[in-house]
Simulated assay, not measured.
Amino acid sequence: MSQSNSSTLRNQENQSAEVTFILLGFSEYPKLQIPLVLLFLTIYSITVLGNLGMILIIKINPKLHTPMYYFLRHLSFVDLCYSTVVTPKLLENLVVEDRTISFTACLAQFFFACTFVVTETFLLAVMAYDRFVAVCNPLLYTVVMSPKLCSLLVGASYSWGTVCSLTLTYFLSELSFRGNNIINNFVCEHAAIVAVSCSDPYISQEIILVSATFNEVSSLVIILTSYVFIFITVLKMPSTGGRHKAFSTCASHLTAITIFHGTILFLYCVPNSRSSWLMVKVASVFYTVVIPMLNPLIYSLRNKDVKETARKLVNTKLLCQQRKSA
Rank of each mutant, 00 (worst) to 15 (best):
V221Y: 12
C81R: 07
Q12N: 12
Y44T: 06
F229T: 02
T87S: 08
A128T: 03
A310I: 06
T225C: 13
M237P: 07
K324W: 10
S165N: 06
L235I: 13
T100E: 05
E216Y: 14
A251H: 09
I182P: 14
L32N: 07
V118N: 08
L265H: 03
V228A: 08
S197K: 00
P88R: 03
C188L: 01
N137H: 15
V280P: 12
E97C: 05
S83C: 12
L36F: 08
T225D: 11
Q205F: 10
S45T: 14
A251G: 03
K317A: 15
V163M: 09
I230E: 02
L123S: 00
V96I: 09
N272I: 14
M127L: 13
K236I: 06
A195L: 12
Y299F: 14
S219Y: 04
A134K: 04
Q322K: 12
V290P: 03
T255F: 06
N14H: 03
F112T: 01
R73Q: 15
F77M: 13
I257D: 10
N303I: 00
L318S: 05
V144L: 10
S211V: 13
I257A: 07
S83E: 10
H244W: 12
L24T: 09
Y158K: 01
D98G: 05
V228C: 07
L39Y: 11
I230P: 01
V78M: 01
I223Q: 00
V282H: 02
T104F: 04
A17G: 14
I55Y: 09
V194Y: 13
L172K: 06
P271V: 01
V314K: 03
R131L: 02
P30R: 06
P35A: 00
Q109Y: 12
A283L: 12
V221C: 13
C269T: 08
S159V: 08
L265R: 05
I46R: 06
A212W: 13
N184A: 14
L220H: 06
M145Y: 04
S239T: 14
I264N: 06
S226Y: 05
L72C: 07
R131T: 05
N61E: 08
L39D: 10
T47H: 08
T225Q: 08
K324S: 11
S6F: 05
F110Q: 05
A105G: 02
H244K: 15
I230H: 01
S165M: 07
L80S: 00
Y268K: 11
I207E: 01
L123Q: 00
I55M: 11
V96S: 06
